[in-house]
Nucleic acid binder design. Sequence first.
DNA 1: GTCTATACGACGATAGAC
DNA 2: GTCTATCGTCGTATAGAC
Lengths: 197, 197
Amino acid sequence: MPRPPLVSDEELIDRLSTLFRNAGYEGASMARVAEVTGLGKSSLYHRFPGGKQQMAEEVTRHLQRTFADRVLSPATRLDLSVTVRLRRIAANLRSFYGAGMCACLLETLTVETISTRTSEGIARAAGAWTDTFAALSREAGIAPREAIARAQDAIARIEGALVLARATGDTRAFERALRSLPVALTGATTDDTRSKQ
Amino acid sequence: MPRPPLVSDEELIDRLSTLFRNAGYEGASMARVAEVTGLGKSSLYHRFPGGKQQMAEEVTRHLQRTFADRVLSPATRLDLSVTVRLRRIAANLRSFYGAGMCACLLETLTVETISTRTSEGIARAAGAWTDTFAALSREAGIAPREAIARAQDAIARIEGALVLARATGDTRAFERALRSLPVALTGATTDDTRSKQ
DNA sequence: GTCTATACGACGATAGAC
DNA sequence: GTCTATCGTCGTATAGAC
């Protein structure tokens, strides 16, 4: 009769995700992994035969799912206006990133040397986020190509605000990025650089 | 009679800066440092008695100076209009960041565990950049508080575009961030989230 | 499935010769 | 000022008992 695991798979990947997000790939040493999960190293290699690389891959997948569920899910609430949906997404982003004080895997995992599989996962996550924002922008009447540009620009502003917050401790740019999200994706703009491209 | 160094101080800090920018603090192992500088480890500890931490501090200072000289210097060209100065700065940013494919110390050095002195240097560099942009914005007639907000937002957009480029390989958001820089700091905006703050 | 014990390399840093 | 040789520590990963 197989022995039940001390820590459920759900719990395990959840704690791993938190660690990888805040410490990055190289900062998340096996010692710290063992510490935050309460498991010995051998147990971890039993659950992740591929070692740290496999952990990074599964963390990437898990955070992408979590992001879709806990952040982007209002995007498909067709009963709400696009603006209201974006306001809800902004609120979700605020809590997901701890009001600007939490890092994003896009930033922490792209600095370090990681496997091709993991960086492909990161690229896919960025793509999914962009697609969601672009779809909302199109739904608000923005032309397809400009919708993609607006989506990328909005995400860039959010990510950059997180970088700035980590560097300076000032989270106001993050707050403004969230506040301006509905306008950035749906509103009129004085920025004529997009149409010229 | 003292023996002249194999590599000049200038050359040394320059190669170190390139390495730290692209590999980050933990990725810049002493082995790689020795490799790119052509010096042995002991020589490096002779020139940097404080070890890697001292290297990081001096790289931070050096890059801040370089950034001021090679990127932000048009800001004080009082003979040019603010818009023209910003276009020149945008061009400088493009070459400084390798058209979007080079990382920024703000991103790479804030992920990893570094000394307080170094992170203070990073914060100072971010502050200097913000101050320069905010001064230009004020010069264009923007109110002081909003000028700071615009400066932060413009920097966030640039930094975030670099993150996105590293994650996806798509540098178009970076290009747009540079193109819209003059308007972002000086022009009218439909973004009413700033004044509400 | 989890543990203790350990292998083995890479890390940052140092000693001492030249 | 630079080198070779080496230290101790921590990294990932594994072996084998329970």
